[in-house]
């Protein structure tokens, strides 16, 4: 059964006076437990597609269905709730809050959801990503790999059904990148989380069950 379905998605942006079409009639299907890699040149619309899938933005045309719920019909509050509870984001530049410790960054989605007790889940995840010893450190004190592991822990803390990763290894060396990918693959295989990953990294894309190629706003299976 499809967890995530994109149907006829079109999205454009205005840069000054110019209209740029980022996505032009994109269809995509991702099953629960599936792993799809999205590759393409810079500016092809990969991140835009990811943001649309996570309800961060609305398409100009088309439908985005998450568990058969059309995201475009949901209010901003409902979409935010989805992101808190059912979707996890992993970004290329980690996007950790610099004034919060690692543990506080990881628990942030739960705090935003009003959860009172988070220690158990946070500790479990920090163990899983190998950062238990860094729980009280600030992001500025971590290496790139550690920051991305913290970001992954944050993305997983609410037990999401869908994981959206935007160039998760883009800012890491190959060894560290490999570790990160292993973590993500582990999540897919062990927890049944669906993973949609944008990447430039060919070797990372090979780990996916399906590789889709995005060029000039159009999608093709590679």
């Amino acid at each position: 059964m499809s967890l995530l379905r994109l149907e006829g998605i079109r999205k454009g942006f205005r840069r000054g006076r110019e209209e740029v079409v980022a996505l032009d009639g994109v269809d995509l299907c991702l099953d629960a437990g599936g792993f799809t890699a999205l590759v393409g040149p810079s500016g092809s619309g990969k991140s835009t597609l990811l943001h649309l899938s996570g309800g961060l933005d609305k398409p100009d045309a088309g439908r985005i269905l998450l568990d058969d719920r059309d995201l475009s019909t949901l209010s901003a509050g409902d979409r935010a709730q989805l992101r808190r509870r059912r979707i996890g984001f992993v970004f290329q530049f980690f996007h950790l809050i610099p004034t919060l410790t690692v543990a506080e960054n990881v628990e942030l989605p739960l705090v935003l959801d009003g959860a009172r007790k988070t220690n158990g889940r946070v500790g479990e995840l920090l163990d899983r990503v190998g950062l238990a010893h860094r729980a009280d450190h600030l992001p500025g004190e971590l290496s790139g790999g550690e920051m991305q592991r913290a970001a992954i822990a944050r993305a997983l803390v609410a037990r999401p059904q869908l994981l959206l990763a935007d160039e998760p290894t883009g800012n890491l060396d190959s060894a560290t990148g490999g570790e990160i990918l292993d973590l993500l693959c582990q999540q897919v295989s062990e927890e049944g989380t669906a993973l949609l990953m944008v990447t430039h990294d060919v070797s990372a894309a090979r780990k996916a069950k399906q590789v889709l190629h995005l060029r000039d706003g159009r999608l093709a299976e590679k």
């Binding site: 808190r84 989605p109 935003l112």
Partner: peptide, 16 residues
């Protein structure tokens, strides 16, 4: 802005 965008991406409510 950046931090607020991250919070928004993680599902932070507008009232937060």
């Amino acid at each position: 802005r950046h931090d607020l965008a991250v919070v928004g991406a993680l599902g932070g409510r507008s009232r937060t």
